[in-house]
Write a protein that binds this DNA or RNA. Structure first.
Lengths: 153, 153
DNA sequence: TATTGTTATACTCTATAACTATA
DNA sequence: TATAGTTATAGAGTATAACAATA
């Protein structure tokens, strides 16, 4: 696979995946950034600064996304007793429900898309995406500890 | 891999890939939609309506992206003699050069990212992205013929 | 002084709707 | 009438900068 093809494939896939997922999430009343925050908080509560850094967006972007989630009771903002500058974000029970509905609509749309491939090709896509995320998490280095509430390995 | 993990992986990967590619493309003085148009036109010239449909964006989005490319002499707008409503978009020589520079900066950034993985894992990522694009192209059905100037199979 | 988060503001990408010109 | 493309406009997502509170 040439250098050119790799770049073109990556950009095409990213744009298309984002579009497909964003369209699907409308059915779950979630925007793409809101779903990303929910996914992230599912692993455990986190201060907003960690969410921003690990999602790779500006702090103000997290504020905007979370505002909508808090208004609908899907996420809670709690003061951190140890450092009162920090706002800890945590999923509510309703938030977990919303996340599952988001998972479902995206997975359904993804399944439909992968239906155009052979079974082993579809598997390669899913494994490849998982590897890609692992690479991105590693590239963020270990600047942040495990989330609170994470039982650990 | 659970349904939940698949959805979360897809959305995370899409957002991260788009960000990484967009940041890299700044070095090549291209925006993400401009690069997508260049990639598309590299296969052959096409009327703007085909570009919009196959990229999955509105016609006005193509107009906006192409305006910048035309201003810099990277893409030409030609009237279609057979149907004078149509505007055929074609890469110029300078456009091909800009596309190659875009390929290079994205590929370099992608290589750096995949360096966090084992060689076979990185290969799975690239093959997976290629399969994913194939699935998306198939899902668009065969509503459009091959691009002009395409030698074909 | 440095950090956390919010607010204010602007820019980019995208879509919808109205319009022009062709068919 | 229907289609191709542009223009005008609006909305979402994002970033930067200024600010308030806390460390």
């Amino acid at each position: 696979m040439s250098r050119t093809e790799r770049s073109a494939d990556a950009v095409r896939a990213a744009a298309r995946l984002a579009k497909v997922a964003g369209t699907a999430l409308v059915e779950a009343d979630l925007t793409l950034p809101q779903y990303r925050v929910l996914v992230f908080l599912d692993a455990g509560e986190r201060p907003a600064s960690h969410v921003a850094a690990l999602l790779g967006v500006a702090p103000s972007t997290v504020t905007a996304a979370v505002d909508g989630l808090v208004a609908r009771g899907l996420v809670e903002r709690r003061a951190d007793p140890a450092d009162r500058r920090k706002v800890v974000l945590a999923l509510t029970t309703a938030g977990r429900g919303a996340l599952r509905r988001g998972d479902d609509v995206v997975a359904a749309r993804l399944d439909r898309l992968l239906g155009f491939l052979e079974v082993d090709e579809a598997e390669t896509v899913l494994v490849g995406l998982a590897h890609l995320n692992r690479a991105m998490e590693r590239s963020l280095a270990e600047r942040f500890g495990p989330p609170a509430g994470d039982p650990g390995p």
